[in-house]
Nucleic acid binder design. Structure first.
Length: 449
RNA sequence: GUGAGCGUAGCUCAGCCGGUAGAGCUCUGGAUUGUGGAUCCAGCGGCCGCGGGUUCAAGCCCCGUCGCUCACCCCA
């Protein structure tokens, strides 16, 4: 007697049913296609990096899954390699390593799983897809790149048809310029910005309290900061208001950059209804230095940011003595997908990618059925043959459950006249078609209307 | 890492004041010959997370442990 091992999921490591995975793949496909439309080249780096690489940016080491071989001395192995926890650090290493052979501005996309050891909860996983694009410049990178990113985001989420969305854009120099102007020490900026970033989540009052009591920011500074981050109005109104404020050079540079980016976004086809200047967007990550982005679904703000990123001054300072500024975004597809599913914004449909199931009614005609399937495939249809010797009833039940739109049925009567029946599984309607014109008929049935 | 809650059938859950387990859904089969999704009938399915304790008796109470979920931290 073999002992049954109870199969159970591992928390934080999602897996989907076919009907769900088909949807996720479709989204991945949309993302990939759009990335390529903007000239980003595919790139894949190993799932594993050296620890010295992963920890070079001072990331939270507790998040990292370290590798140990099953056989061998764990102590030795464990020190050296780990799974990557994002795609930016591997990109930095990659760009530095292959610097001479790459063309700059270098633009690549990377769609891979990443791993983080953090405790899972709603919308937070330990294994998930990141879909990253970045544009990396050599020494310099035009602000045009910053304007292009929202255009990519816009096209992706429009194509996905997941409801109206808003890209929130800001420039970090505005906030850090303000803090610098008020003589707040640089090492405290991150805490402050992280708190500001929570305005939408916990509300203005709590942020105000946290800024003054926990962080100890002077009252006037808190008020100024919160006024700054709650600016509202049209794009032009907000920009003019920002331009009227005098918080020093860095602040002014930030406002100037923001205007330039936003004005170019228009030419890149981002409608004004799909983006907004939002000075509260700070992004917790400390490596962002200029433009920052966040994107939300208008009807589902609770889902949180579905895509975020920004500009950084120097990508690979730890790996190469070149200044490589860049700008990019990351779509956390697993989180996005799981929440769209939970919210019912995307709904699982068929459990098959096939268009048609070829049933086998009479096994003495096996060769004919197989030839039909081959013919359908030749026409570009996805065709599946029901291989098991079961009653037609069972075959149709199978087709229903799996969500086939069409089923081909043929027996002695049909074959005698070189015909087959094509049954539409939604309407139940059946049509007799000539075997010689099968492909065209099937395509007709599949096309909408 | 910190805090809270929850572990009963494949899934969602019920189970009273402690008396050795139940529903719905799913699944499988059937309602005659080459036609599914609806309905009806039947059936499969449980070391009540694991270990210990209290008790005549524990799914229920107590302790521990593991797991899960949520929140915080942080982030996609």
């Amino acid at each position: 007697m073999t002992e049954i091992i109870k199969p159970r999921p591992i928390s934080g490591f999602p897996e989907w049913l076919p009907s769900e995975k088909i949807l996720e793949e479709k989204m991945l496909g949309t993302i990939r296609k759009t990335f390529e439309r903007f000239g980003f080249s595919p790139l894949e780096t190993p799932a594993v990096e050296r620890n010295e690489v992963l920890t070079s940016k001072g990331g939270n080491e507790k998040e990292i899954y370290t590798l140990a071989r099953l056989a061998g001395t764990p102590e030795d192995d464990a020190k050296e390699y780990s799974l990557h926890f994002d795609l930016t650090v591997p990109l930095a290493r990659y760009v530095a390593q292959h610097f001479q052979r790459l063309s700059f501005p270098f633009r690549r996309y990377q769609i891979q799983k990443v791993w983080r050891g953090e405790r899972p909860q709603d919308g937070r996983f330990r294994e998930f897809y990141q879909c990253d694009i970045d544009i990396i410049g050599e020494e310099n990178l035009s602000l045009l790149a910053d304007a292009e990113i929202p255009s990519v985001i816009h096209q992706i989420f429009s194509a996905m048809e997941i409801g109206d969305f808003i890209i929130k854009i800001n420039n970090r120099k505005i906030l850090s310029g303000f803090l610098q102007f008020h003589n707040i020490p640089a090492e405290r900026h991150n805490d402050i910005l992280r708190t500001i970033d929570k305005v939408e989540k916990i509300g203005r009052e709590k942020v105000e309290r946290e800024l003054s009591s926990v962080i100890g920011l002077p009252g006037e500074c808190v008020t100024g900061l919160l006024d700054l981050t709650s600016l509202q109005g049209t794009r032009e109104e907000v920009l003019m208001r920002l331009e009227s404020l005098d918080y020093g050079d860095l602040f002014r540079t930030g406002v100037f950059e923001l205007r330039e980016v936003v004005e170019n976004m228009e030419g890149l086809g981002v409608p004004s209804g799909n983006y907004r200047i939002d000075s509260s967007v700070a992004r917790g990550l400390d490596y962002y230095t200029g433009t920052v982005y966040e994107t939300n679904l208008k009807a589902h703000p609770d889902i949180g940011s579905i895509c975020s990123g920004g500009r950084f001054d120097n990508l690979a300072g730890n790996f190469i003595k070149k200044r490589l500024p860049g700008v990019g975004i990351s779509i956390g597809l697993t989180r996005l997908f799981s929440r769209l599913l939970a919210a019912g914004i995307v709904k699982p449909g068929a459990s098959t990618v096939s268009n048609i199931l070829v049933t086998i009614l009479d096994r003495s005609y096996l060769k004919e059925y197989l030839a039909i399937a081959t013919q359908l495939r030749g026409m570009g249809l996805n065709a599946e043959v029901y291989t098991e010797p079961k009653a037609l009833k069972k075959q149709l039940q199978f087709a229903s459950k799996k969500g086939f739109k069409m089923v081909l049925i043929a027996g002695e009567n049909e074959f005698r006249e070189r015909k087959a029946k094509i049954k539409n599984m939604e309407s139940g309607e059946e049509r007799e078609v000539s075997l010689d014109r099968l492909g065209e008929e099937a395509s007709l049935l599949l096309s909408p209307g």
